[in-house]
Amino acid sequence: MESVPSINQLGAQQAEREKQQTRRNLAITAAMSIFAFVWLIPIAWTLALSFRPEDSITANLTLLLPLPFTAENYDFVFSSSRIPRWFLNSLIVASLRTFLQLMICSLAAYSFARVKFPFRQTVFYFVLIGLMVPGQATFIPVYLLFSNLKLLNSFPALIVPGIASPFAVFLLVQFFKGIPIELEEAARLDGASRIGVYWRIFLPLSTPVLTALAIFTFLGAWNEYLWPLVAATDPEVMTITIGLTNLTATTYTANYGETMAAAWTAGLPIVGFFFVFQKRIISGIQISSGIK
């Protein structure tokens, strides 16, 4: 026969279980902290390097703190390299591409989602094919096109090929289909035109998804590698991602402090950007993956 546990026994069991839980949580937190520390070493170490004088780096390589502190390396980067220019180029290319992609793709997406025209579904499927086309499959013909137009080494070459994004259209069509039709009908009865509905109803209601898309397009353009590598070989129009590869070629004997200052001049604004938009970036990834 089973004996019924007394209130005291139950309480003790409960307390024991809670204690176990707390111990387990502490262990997990400790493990995570160690792991996170190791994860941050590459960033902390090279960031510290960028603020240290070269002789001190040679004397004590693995120091994770910027001691003794100096901004000389950054002075050098800003005064005697092309990095500020490349930075500006990247800013122009990424911003313009993001803006144009959002405009053109959202307009097309609105039409696919709400306007009736012949062969709409067929054209939409035709666009979806683009989701499965890798950049390596298209960049040689696109290169020849710009070469024939004598437009290599220009901003249009860096900006225009990335504007039409099948993924952006796909994502926005999904979102636009969820906007209540009554809103649109009411506005139409009040005499709003199609473009008015798109501009005054659909765009404002889609701010979250448009922001997520803008962030990813901007980061994608900023970090793009293969296409700018062939399209912009002139140092005057290079993006910073490509410009910096000239530094990776200068082997391990090169000046550590200056090289790392160059790397973090490119990296820190993106890290800052990440901290500002962190929530949107993380939810954006989880939403667009279709898992959540």
Binding site: P42, N223, Y225, I240, T241, T245, A263, A266
Partner: peptide
């Protein structure tokens, strides 16, 4: 680290 460019 995921948002850093490949060159960095």
């Amino acid at each position: 680290p995921n948002i850093l460019s490949v060159t960095v």
